[in-house]
Each structure stands twice: as structure tokens, then as C-alpha cells.
Design a protein around this nucleic acid. Structure first.
Lengths: 159, 159
DNA sequence: CCCGGTTTGACCATCTTTGACCTTTACAAG
DNA sequence: CTTGTAAAGGTCAAAGATGGTCAAACCGGG
């Protein structure tokens, strides 16, 4: 099994995901300070975990409120499968789609069961291969082309 | 000839292979610095050993993570689908593999049931996307990179 | 002497942890 | 209302913890 090294951030991530799993509403509210205290760390560590593990790209939405009765709310988002492709189609056709958007796209297609886990990984690998390109502009163009072709193919074979 | 010299690299190689043998999971996690310290050498020596003795062609997969609680993981793998992957790894690693070879590779991976029809189509689409590159040399390099990453991913997710 | 494999070290990249300082909000006192 | 303040949470940059790269130096055999 791919067991993760247990540093503080990983532990906190696991803990929060566990809570999310247990919650029927698919969302949890926490107190930043309390959580930090529970893990014996500074409060800003919580932000670090949220920023690196609970991003939109990874399918989470984080909201918060300061002051008295403040909170941090983490929600697992479920996007409508049918609209995902359309959402990104514009960017891709325009040849302008950044890496983080693409990763989000792959993630969402997988979550919506449009592609399998293996397929998502193959697409990620393809994305990864572009890293050898130095020229940022060319890389952007290729990224768009790559996903244009792959998505088109998916549409074709799904008919 | 025939007998290996017992230099540092060989000793470290043996040590790591011993550990791998003893591990039930077929994978070990080490700390680069610790290992180097154990062998009284600089950390980069570890990389040298990994690069020369634990390559994919030799049946090993190395992953790592930097930062706090980082690690270097070495996994023993069995190159699946007989030698289909192995046959192409040489060319791919060397960054030289032409389009027809790649298409042949995809076809064989599919026929040997190593990848699904959909997966083969996604890979073909990725290959297709490279057509927008004018520079023949760059295209060749990217094609190799693309399949290097995708095959590596296949190996990883098949464990 | 030359060559390939080996050994080292300086410098780099990435991920995590911590802390000082900042902003927002609820609420009670005036 | 207005304002003061305590109670949240947010930002950012530095420090710490690992691993990665690359090229020069080293070294033993042919």
C-alpha cells in the first residue's frame, strides 16, 4: 500500500478528510485555533494544509468567517458531470489553459465518472511530459492542443 | 573481469537490495542523508547508486519527496506484458522513438490487454496533438518524453 | 596516458513549520 | 448609535528539512 509519511500536514489532512467522510452533509465546520491546538501547531499551519490539500482543483471548497463565532468550513464539491467539458471547452479552444486548470479538469472528469482512474493518470502523465519545454508560450499551446485532442477522442469513443 | 569490485556504490547497492529482499511489500523507504551517513559518503552518492543500479530497465522504480519527512522510495517491479515495455524503454529513454514505433507500441499494449481500448485511444490522441510542432527535433523529444511519462505512470498504477 | 566508472561538493528546488503582524466580526459598554 | 475590545481567522516571509543536479576531481585497468 502507498502509505504516506506522516508529517503534521498529512496527519491533519487525513483527519479532516475523515471528518468529511463521516459528515452526512458533505461539509464540516472547524475552529482554526482548536484544530491547531489539537495538533500542537500554530494556527497558520491549518491554512497551509487547506491551501495545499483542499484546493478547488482537488474538489474542495473552503469558506470562512473571522471574528466572534468565526469558523472555517470545508465542503466537498460535486460538479455536474455533463457541464464539465463545456466549462473548459472555451479555454481549450482558445489555446489558453493553465496547468492548474487542466489538473482541475482531469480531477473533475474522474470524479464525475467520465474517465477512469487509470485514464486520469495517463492524462496527468501526458501533462507532465510537457515539463521539458522551456518556452512558456509553446508549452501553453501544446497543453491546449494535447487536451483538445484527448477530450475530442473521449467524446468520440463515448458516443 | 567477472568479479565486481567492492567499492562504495556496490556495497550500497547490495545493502539496498538486501533490504528490498527482506521487505514483504517489495518496497523500502529511506532517508537519503541517513543512508549517506551510514556509508560515510555525501548524499549525492545515493543518487548515483540509484541512477546506475536501480533503473526501470533493471526492474526498479524510484520515487521521492523533498521537505520535512521526505523520503526516497525504491520499489521492485516486474515489467508486465512480458518484455513489451522493456523493448521500447531503451529507445524511449534515449529520446529516440519515431511515430510508427510508438503506434506499434500502443497497439501491442492494447493487444496484450495491458491497456484498454479507451486508454489506447487517449494515448493516440496525445500523440496526435504533437502534430502542431513544426520543429522535427523538438517533436521527437516530446514524443519520447510523452511516452516515457505515460509508460512510467502505467507501471506505477499497475503495482 | 587515457577512459570509463566513481566520489565529492557547491548550489538548487521543493515542501513544511513557525511566528510576527494584519483584518474582520460580534457584542457589550457608553 | 458609536466605539472599544476580545475573539476569531488571514498573510507573508523566514527558517528548517529534505532531496536533486551537475560538473570537476579522482582512480584503477588497459
Amino acid at each position: 500500500m502507498g502509505k504516506k509519511m506522516s508529517n503534521l500536514s498529512n496527519s491533519m489532512e487525513e483527519y479532516l478528510k475523515k471528518l468529511l467522510t463521516l459528515s452526512t452533509a458533505g461539509s464540516i465546520d472547524i475552529r482554526r485555533k482548536e484544530l491547531a491546538s489539537k495538533f500542537s501547531c500554530v494556527p497558520s499551519q491549518v491554512n497551509y494544509v487547506l491551501e495545499t490539500r483542499f484546493t478547488l482543483e482537488k474538489g474542495y471548497l473552503v469558506e470562512s468567517k473571522r471574528g466572534g463565532k468565526g469558523f472555517v468550513r470545508i465542503r466537498k464539491i460535486q460538479l455536474p458531470a455533463e457541464n464539465i467539458l463545456a466549462m473548459f471547452f472555451q479555454d481549450i479552444m482558445a489555446g489558453r489553459i493553465n496547468e492548474s486548470k487542466v489538473r482541475g479538469l482531469i480531477q473533475r472528469l474522474y470524479e464525475s465518472k467520465y474517465i477512469s482512474f487509470r485514464e486520469s493518470k495517463i492524462m496527468e502523465a501526458a501533462l507532465e511530459s510537457l515539463k521539458i519545454i522551456k518556452d512558456e508560450l509553446l508549452r501553453e499551446k501544446l497543453r491546449a492542443s494535447l487536451f483538445h485532442e484527448m477530450l475530442l477522442m473521449l467524446v468520440k469513443i463515448t458516443l
